[in-house]
Design a protein around this nucleic acid. Structure first.
Lengths: 237, 237
DNA sequence: GACAATTAAATGTCTGACAAATGAAAAATG
DNA sequence: CATTTTTCATTTGTCAGACATTTAATTGTC
């Protein structure tokens, strides 16, 4: 049972390793496709397939023209966010992760940010949170918009920690859960309750009271899990 | 300044959207390359480049032969781990994330797992942690091996929470920091200290004492940050 | 029915060609 | 000489067609 991967996969791996190891620094130009095909002794199509693999991971970017070519791409947090969110969303949907598990992960991680956010959140973060609370209070809002605003609120909380690495890690957990949340029908009463909790969380962050934020997040986690479970038991009938 | 992406990128996006939206379910076979090239009205090479992009993200797998083709791949947690770790490592190295920031994120996230792990860790998790502690106590161990064992120890702690979503999110934070940790030269004294802390953490987990685990992790976070900073100030000279 | 050879379908790879973009050099212009 | 225009070489993007390889189903043979 031989298991030789495709040539294009091998070549992609070879170049990827060079990038990850730092052997090919950011903005370095790779040899042209023609040169690469000579170096690896394969056709240009094979090289191109390898390069497309790397491009899909945002490891390189390509430019046409005389001074063009493939360049090692600086992976931005923005790029990474996007990838993380798609991957997380697929993980949840394809592996039938139940709502409670996803919810637990999300709030556990969010609570990890809370103390830092209580300490460092700027006026901007607070303003964003207040604005989202206002949006959430609008009567005619669709469930989807309510969820989106919920995500934006929590994003602001996470970003308030002022640690881009944390924000990146949390992006997946917070945003990937949105499709699952969208399956919940929010009653007027549950919306009121959530908005009230958000307000208290924002107040506590404004007062830099990490302990209360943590307590409120724990409460909100329980409440959200309950909402999710009532949906699950209703659809199981 | 027109900004039309490549055809292969467009096609990849089209198929990716179909997968993410659930329009193409797991294990569904995509049309053959020939059929796709007809549908999208492009050449087979272009279709292939699109498929390679998707393969790079583990969204599809391909099989040769009569009943072969491209199939929608179930994204496993294992696959996602790998991608997360590479991405996180690149983010840290390419954006010159300082050790303190990375360290802060890592321990904040890890502390999020601690209460759950104290409650749910199995005997297996404890055994793994004890085994790694033993390895870390070996005198002749290289710095790299010490770091690797450190990562394994913390992985076991995180996995103890029994939430695969958490484990996935944490994989990046914990493992991507390893290269940064590798730059630290661990003195015999600092190793002893870390091993002692690990032992106390394992003890607290065995006793299901979440509070003590949290306290110890906070301490370990501070200590690790100190070690990192002393390296930074030494190399700044 | 069991086994072997054939066949069909699909991906993997190669070759060669042309289109399009793009910056740099060369030429024309004032 | 300075500036603008033109040409040109380089490189990626796309296409068409061919052949190799793998794999399962089909067919043929005993």
């Amino acid at each position: 049972m031989k298991n030789a991967p495709d040539l294009s996969a091998q070549i992609a791996k070879s170049i990827r390793d060079a990038i990850v190891s730092g052997d090919l620094p950011v903005d370095e130009r790779l040899p042209s496709e023609a040169e690469l095909s000579e170096q690896f002794d394969v056709s240009r199509s094979t090289v191109r397939e390898a390069l497309k693999r790397l491009a899909a991971q945002s490891l390189i970017r390509t430019q046409r023209g005389a001074t063009g070519g493939a360049f090692v791409n600086r992976l931005t947090f923005q790029d990474a966010y996007g990838q993380q969110i798609t991957t997380s969303a697929l993980l949840l949907s394809m592996n039938e992760v139940d709502f409670v598990t996803a919810c637990e992960a999300r709030f556990a991680l969010e609570r990890a940010c809370a103390p830092l956010s209580a300490q460092r959140r700027t006026a901007d973060h607070l303003a964003t949170m207040r604005a989202e609370i206002t949006r959430q209070s609008q009567p005619g809002l669709s469930d989807e918009s309510f969820c989106a605003s919920d995500v934006a609120f929590h994003r602001a909380l996470v970003d308030g920690a002022g640690n881009p690495v944390l924000s990146y890690q949390l992006a997946g957990a917070v945003e990937a859960i949105e499709p699952l949340m969208n399956m919940i029908t929010f009653t007027a009463r549950s919306r009121d309750h959530i908005v009230a909790m958000h307000t208290r969380i924002a107040d506590a962050l404004e007062a830099s009271d990490a302990e209360i934020v943590d307590k409120l997040l724990a409460e909100l986690a329980d409440y959200t899990a309950e909402l999710g479970q009532s949906v699950a038991s209703a659809s199981a009938k």
